[in-house]
């Protein structure tokens, strides 16, 4: 068990009025619990605004969690002081969604890759140089690229730089926040393959956040589905895709396009919109849109429990 997240909550205050009084709060992540085993890839899916990115960032304490517990290698991350956390970041890295925004435009690739090593005091000058070259090689770039600036690369190449940067400190866990969704479809597969190769080579553990179900299916060992800040279902990949238990997961999976014109399928069309995270529905967050809603759903929040064989679901059904 590399990472354990227990009842993670992150709320953002809504401020209004002349003096910035707190007028409400947005619940971005609502009591999310899961664990990630060493060497596996946990996919986290959900639609825009469901809190999956916030979850990833809260785990790295880039957004300070409001409450909950995060245990990484037996250590509680939230108990760490600022300096201890800074040092711990060596083991927890992140790959960002937008390869155009996540690289400092005024740094050369070499400096981008060398800086994490400097920050964590890894190696001396020549050693670092060698390591940067190795990193470039690992992600399929060559040495001449080191002296260039990010704007001279394509999206896919930039994402490779982002991956190389995340790898530079030899981390144990990488939170990949939609690492391919900003890329061209033809490039996506290359980057996914690269990530899979690197995982094998360095025994990396990924928390892979995405909204593309086919991408998540390809790369993940286990998949978690989020809705409105809550984890509604989490199971082994095949289990989840074959036998989804939660009505939301069922609806989500039924929306995946199948490239077969003769394929007849039953689409579950949800009515209405996602409720505002500033004003969550009582009981199950999904009940206003659930086709199978019962009375209990409107009152009692379903527990996120193991329904057998490590298949977690939060539903009264």
């Amino acid at each position: 068990m590399l990472l354990q997240v227990h009842n993670l909550r992150k709320t953002f205050p809504i401020r209004g009025g002349l003096f910035g009084k707190r007028t409400g709060e947005i619940t971005a992540v609502d009591e999310v619990s899961f664990f990630v085993k060493k060497g596996e890839t946990l996919g986290l899916v959900g639609e825009s605004g469901c809190g999956k990115s916030t979850t990833g960032r809260a785990i790295l304490r880039l957004h300070e969690p409001t409450s909950g517990e995060i245990t990484f290698e037996g250590r509680s991350l939230l108990a760490l002081g600022e300096e201890e956390m800074r040092k711990a970041r060596r083991d927890l890295q992140m790959i960002f969604q937008d390869p155009f925004a996540s690289l400092n435009p005024r740094q050369k690739v070499f400096d981008i890759l060398e800086e994490p090593l400097i920050v964590h005091g890894m190696g001396n000058g020549p050693e670092r140089k060698e390591q940067v070259q190795e990193l470039l090689h690992l992600v399929g770039l060559n040495q001449s690229h080191a002296m260039r600036y990010p704007h001279q690369f394509s999206g896919g190449q930039r994402q490779r730089i982002g991956i190389a940067r995340a790898l530079s400190t030899k981390p144990k866990l990488i939170v990949a926040d939609e690492p391919v969704s900003a890329l061209d479809v033809s490039i996506q597969s290359q980057v996914l393959n690269l990530m899979a190769d690197l995982q094998e080579k360095f025994e990396l553990t990924y928390l892979f956040i995405a909204h593309d179900l086919s991408v998540v299916k390809h790369i993940s060992d286990r998949v978690g589905v989020m809705y409105l800040g809550r984890l509604v279902e989490l199971a082994d990949r095949d289990d989840l895709y074959e036998k989804p238990l939660h009505p939301y997961t069922q609806a989500l999976l039924s929306a995946v396009p199948v490239p077969d014109p003769d394929f007849q399928k039953q689409r579950i069309i949800l009515s209405g919109d996602v409720p505002s995270p500033a004003n969550l529905p009582k009981g199950c967050a999904f009940h206003p849109r659930c086709p199978l809603v019962m009375d209990i759903c409107k009152e009692v929040r379903p527990e996120f429990t193991d329904q057998g064989g490590g298949h977690f679901s939060a539903c009264h059904l």
Binding site: L103, H120, T169
Partner: peptide, 11 residues
């Protein structure tokens, strides 16, 4: 994002 990235690097 690159500032967030810098923080994530542990700077």
């Amino acid at each position: 994002d690159y500032i967030l990235a810098a923080r994530a690097m542990g700077m």
